[in-house]
Amino acid sequence: MNAEHAREVAAAEFWVYLMTDLIMFSVLFACYAVLHTATYGGPTAAELFSLPNALVETLILLVSSFTSGLAMLAVHANKKDRAMAWFGATFILGAAFLVLELKEFHELIVDGNGPQRSAFLSAFFSLVGTHGLHIFTGLLWMAVAMVQMKKKGLSTFIVSKLERLSLFWHFLDIVWIFLFTVVYLMSRIA
């Protein structure tokens, strides 16, 4: 297997893995759809979720998706320092997203609306929390990738890894679109 073919194969494998991740998320979405009215007498989604906060989170993630795209443009133009800078920006935005999300979780739990309160809240925390865990993993991966970029430059080996990382990051933003729509926006249907 030559290097070009190996890169193609690795990219294909990673894409297929992303597809299986989508199916995992679909199970969580299905659970949320089925259980979101099971509040067991507790507060409903409309009462609990702050839309402005969710909008800010969405915009942060969208900008971070854009900066990761800019980072990849720099990578393909062989501009290592610019790429590092844009990945750094992506990292900070991703971290900010997580901080906001953890804050929201903390407030809910402190008010007694943690995941053990009802099936609805179990579904909420699991769906949003799983996405958050993926973001955390992405940040960890980004940190490692930046170290690798610094040490080894922009060889084909490193570039193919960065391509997969940016794919992952974009994919997380796509999942968030649906999370934002189904969990937050649709809480105000009535």
Partner: peptide, 19 residues
């Protein structure tokens, strides 16, 4: 990338505004 970004922002704000 810029077009994609701008469109995404627009669609997000549209959805938000609808609600």
């Amino acid at each position: 990338y810029a077009i994609g970004f701008a469109l995404s922002i627009a669609l997000t704000l549209a959805a938000y505004g609808l609600v």
